[in-house]
Amino acid sequence: MSEQEVQDWIRKQIAESDVVVFMKGTKKVPQCGFSGQVAQIMDYLGVDYQDINVLDDMSVRDGIKKFTNWPTIPQVYVKGEFVGGCDIVREMFQAGELSQLLTEKGISHNKTNMTA
């Protein structure tokens, strides 16, 4: 794929699924601690999400960094909008803001968070 084709492909992915996680490894077998944390949070919240393994394709790994203008993986998109990487998603989850965002966007999940 050309660089432009990669950008178009990424745009298509985040348009087609409500929640997309660009990660190292898969949701079942994450290959990086940060990606694994995001997968755990998504699983805990019971969110149906599309995982995209950037290790499968170097052009996607570079392309998503350019697309978002964000230097690190994982990257989480909700309804086509960039939410953040591991630190931000974890902070939002702990503060209950991630659940709130999903609710606002009409995405079904377990309405719970870690603060108990």
Binding site: N69, W70, P71, T72, F82, V83, G84, G85, D87, I88, E91, M92
Partner: peptide, 10 residues
């Protein structure tokens, strides 16, 4: 926002 803060540092 969190994203803007991280962007500043990045």
């Amino acid at each position: 926002s969190r994203v803007d803060r991280h962007r500043l540092v990045n």
